[in-house]
């Protein structure tokens, strides 16, 4: 995967500003509101609101960018493949190619595409399986993994297997951690570190499966899919548009 966009992209700057505003001002505001008015309980509602808030800047900047049909299609296709892949491995709990596919899209098409692919995958796959309060968390978790992958894709690191393995491992852990936050606070709206570690502890088999499946799928898919995406980029001039 080669660096795809220049870093002095004006959209990136604008996105950064919007993101900063929302994350830096709105989030603490919400926290403050929650702590003072709700007497430090009800983290479940608060966390849902915050996760949704955190996703909004990405959508806004995507709207602002006036995406081309081909970019839209690439994101939709990759999300649909991730969803179909998730469904195809329905017999193997937690062993899913979703994170790998989202990450590979991020490697090739940058952080924004990575985030949107992750978010679209979460929403769509839950439309098929049933929405729940976990949807925003999944949206955020896969989105942010796609985003990180997009940032890493600008370096040369992802050409090496060792980095893919490290990324697969860490992304499995990160995904699990984000979803554990939800598990803990969904229980009684409270968040304590001891409970969080207890939850993370019981989730170790899952975390391990996430990590292993990520590594396997990344190692097996990164190169072939990367090549396919590159070919599409060249053949249809996605770069010049």
């Amino acid at each position: 995967m080669q660096p795809t966009t220049k870093s002095n992209d004006p959209f990136l700057k604008k996105k950064f500003i919007i993101t900063s505003i929302i994350v830096l001002i709105l989030t603490p505001l919400c926290l403050l509101l929650g702590v003072t008015l709700w007497q430090d309980r009800r983290y479940n509602i608060l966390s849902l609101i915050m996760v949704i808030l955190a996703c909004i800047p990405f959508f806004l900047s995507f709207e602002h960018k006036k995406p081309k049909p081909r970019e839209i299609l690439i994101i939709a296709v990759m999300s649909a493949i991730a969803v179909a892949g998730r469904a195809a491995f329905v017999w193997a709990p937690a062993f899913k190619p979703v994170t790998a596919i989202v990450a590979i899209t991020g490697f090739s098409f940058g952080p924004a595409a990575g985030f949107l692919t992750g978010a679209a995958t979460a929403i769509t796959s839950n439309i098929f399986c049933g929405q729940g309060p976990w949807t925003p968390f999944q949206m955020f978790a896969w989105g942010i993994l796609g985003y990180i992958a997009g940032v890493l894709g600008k370096t040369d690191w992802m050409k090496y297997k060792i980095w893919l393995i490290i990324f697969g491992l860490l992304s499995g852990i990160l995904y699990s951690f984000i979803m554990d936050i939800w598990t803990v606070i969904s229980y009684d709206g409270r968040f304590t570190w001891s409970r969080y570690f207890a939850a993370a502890g019981t989730a170790i088999p899952y975390t391990a499966t996430y990590a292993i499946s990520n590594i396997i799928f990344l190692l097996l898919l990164a190169k072939p899919i990367g090549e396919k995406l590159k070919r599409i980029k060249i053949k249809y001039g996605l770069l010049e548009e």
Binding site: I56, F59, E63, A76, S79, A120, T124, I127
Partner: peptide
């Protein structure tokens, strides 16, 4: 909120 993203979902 986000017509382009809604279109992505519809396509997906």
């Amino acid at each position: 909120i986000s017509p382009a993203f809604a279109l992505i979902i519809s396509l997906t």
